[in-house]
Design a binder for these strands. Structure first.
Lengths: 352, 352
DNA sequence: CTGAAAGCGCTTACAG
DNA sequence: CTGAAAGCGCTTACAG
């Protein structure tokens, strides 16, 4: 119907290898050979075929080919939330890697919904993808994920699903926050809050533990009240830090679950008449492109999106080639010091 | 090879309609009928088939089906830059609409590169997509785009390509900036700068003209120096406003090409010791989620991503059903007043 | 180096 | 309501 006779499209009659073969005066097997880049075809024949392809406007039908040889160049990137700028950076890096390897990356957004995740993955399976990258939605079942990995190469990014036998590539969250916290302690801070994020995200727990590790090591107390969860959005950071400060204004530094959360903290501080980086130190996690452009420029834990993409792609290849489930990987992390952390007491109004 | 005997995957032997037919004790035509939801099958048979499908773990092969009936549920969203948060909002809205209509949206990011755009679109064609949404890369050739639209339903979003016969859905850019500028003029501003964006983006020209319309109408001069182009990133806004202010600090208000540019302007102002919304008025365009969370909350021109998505999807359907190229559409625009615009003279240091 | 034949997993008339 | 047959556009051995 769509491609019927009434079509406004000029190419309503699909041209196939047979047409190309006819035009080039060879058999369709030969056309297939040159399509696939075989070296066993005379150069002159190759160019005659290519000429015919061009002249007829032939478009390779990858679905038909895939049906026959059971191959697919489609790789799915199942993203939990396209509005997350860090994830966007990871996706961009992933696309670069995958294309170099001849894959066709397609991204599908699930908006943090397990239901959408299930629907989308089902469709993707119907389209015979070569593999999956995914940042699983909260509440993803381990059995579901394991079953998927049983039938398709699958690499998890950033987030872990407890009990699932699936390789995951993630930042060294715990060490990252440990290093950031030690830095703040070195600046003289003793009353440090940890804001943003929630326990249903595996990253969260690891980052929080890194924070606690450093505090414990320095003999500093962490009160329940110094930790405030929230959504991972900007708004979450704003709300969370306000709660903490309302309870106790002796806090001199705030460690944020992510850079986005830190942006929300900046806003909240300004609305309270405080200047981030002067009155209160702020640290983030991710190192988004924007973070060096904030005022003050945000001190944060950098996790190179390129590193994640590279390790993930490597592992997908490994899986496809060796039929072996690859190992997990912890991506290196680095503290980037900018201007959002004052020495304690420098201007701070707290007790410290 | 991937699915060979050595496969670690449990489902190495693909189960097909034939297996299902055998298990259910019917012919494969019948299986196909229930797969496609035909009403001409006995209810009891339907459930027996579905039972077999479940038991065998059958997954529908959409490529094989598409090969036969020339249909596809794949819709491509070709995005110029995934890191652009407004585009992310549009994509999310688009995905919602498309899924409701039974399509499978896949997004492909081209990172503002015409070359990548060409490669990706070629691949997408090979995968037989039902249609394209795209925000064309800068420098896209009209003939290329028209040729694509000749063979596939295609709707352009946000950006127009001069000379291409392709429907485009975009905000009423000119009116948006006109309204914003009038608002500023009403607040007493006379020295208003327009920063960010560049002429190779069709949006840019329209927005700038809207600004000029309002200024002209009010009998206010616009000097060359009051308009400064830049990248559409945050960094661009920062640089552009600095240039303008370095040349002439009598400026009391800044209209930004987008919200993202406005965020960069905020940073630049702070670094100059100025408070946005007090010392200088700032207006954006888009109304990103974050804009109401900035400090001060950003006054901006709202363009509902949902409206764009809805009009775009409607038109794609129309195209597919009537085989008729639909009209362009201008999406309504609305000024959202928040706290980033002072009355002139209220605190401003300029001449005004 | 090239050609004829079979088959990938579906759907579509067409008989029954 | 169900079954047998042909065909979508490719690729893969297998002969020549």
């Amino acid at each position: 119907m769509v491609k019927g006779k009434k079509s406004v499209h000029s190419s309503s009659q699909k041209v196939t290898v047979i047409d190309v073969a006819k035009a080039a005066g060879v058999s369709k097997s030969t056309v297939s050979l040159v399509l696939r880049g075989s070296t066993n075809v005379k150069a002159e024949t190759v160019s005659r075929v290519n000429e015919a392809i061009r002249a007829l406007g032939y478009v390779y039908n990858r679905d038909a080919a895939g049906l026959r040889n059971r191959e697919s160049n489609l790789v799915a990137i199942v993203a939990n939330d396209l509005a997350n700028p860090y994830l966007a950076q990871v996706i961009i890096a992933l696309e670069g890697e995958l294309e170099q390897q001849g894959f066709m990356p397609v991204v599908v957004n699930i908006n943090e919904s397990v239901e959408r995740q299930a629907t989308m993955v089902e469709s993707l399976k119907e389209h015979n993808v070569a593999g999956f990258f995914m940042t699983p939605a909260p509440e993803t079942k381990a059995e579901w994920l394991s079953a998927l990995a049983d039938a398709h190469p699958l690499i998890c990014l950033m987030r872990e699903v407890e009990g699932a036998t699936v390789p995951v590539i993630k930042p060294d969250n715990r060490r990252g926050m440990y290093v950031a916290t030690r830095y703040l302690i070195g600046l003289g801070h003793k009353r440090i809050a940890f804001v943003g994020g929630m326990a249903s995200i595996s990253d969260y727990v690891e980052r929080r533990e890194g924070f606690k590790d450093a505090m414990r090591e320095a003999g500093l107390a962490v009160k329940e009240d110094d930790i405030e969860t929230s959504s991972t959005k900007r708004h979450g950071g704003k709300i969370a830090v306000n709660r903490v400060l309302d309870r106790d204004d002796s806090i001199t530094a705030v460690i944020c679950f992510t850079d986005v959360v830190a942006y929300g903290v900046y806003t909240a501080l300004r609305e309270r008449g405080l200047t981030p980086g002067k009155d209160i130190a702020v640290v983030g996690f991710d190192d988004l492109e924007d973070s060096r452009l904030m005022s003050p420029a945000l001190t944060t834990v950098r996790v190179r999106a390129e590193d994640i993409a590279q390790m993930a792609t490597e592992r997908l290849q490994q899986w496809r080639q060796n039929q072996q489930i690859p190992d997990n990987a912890l991506v290196d992390v680095e503290l980037v010091v900018r201007s959002s952390c004052c020495l304690v007491g420098e201007r701070a109004g707290g007790l410290a």
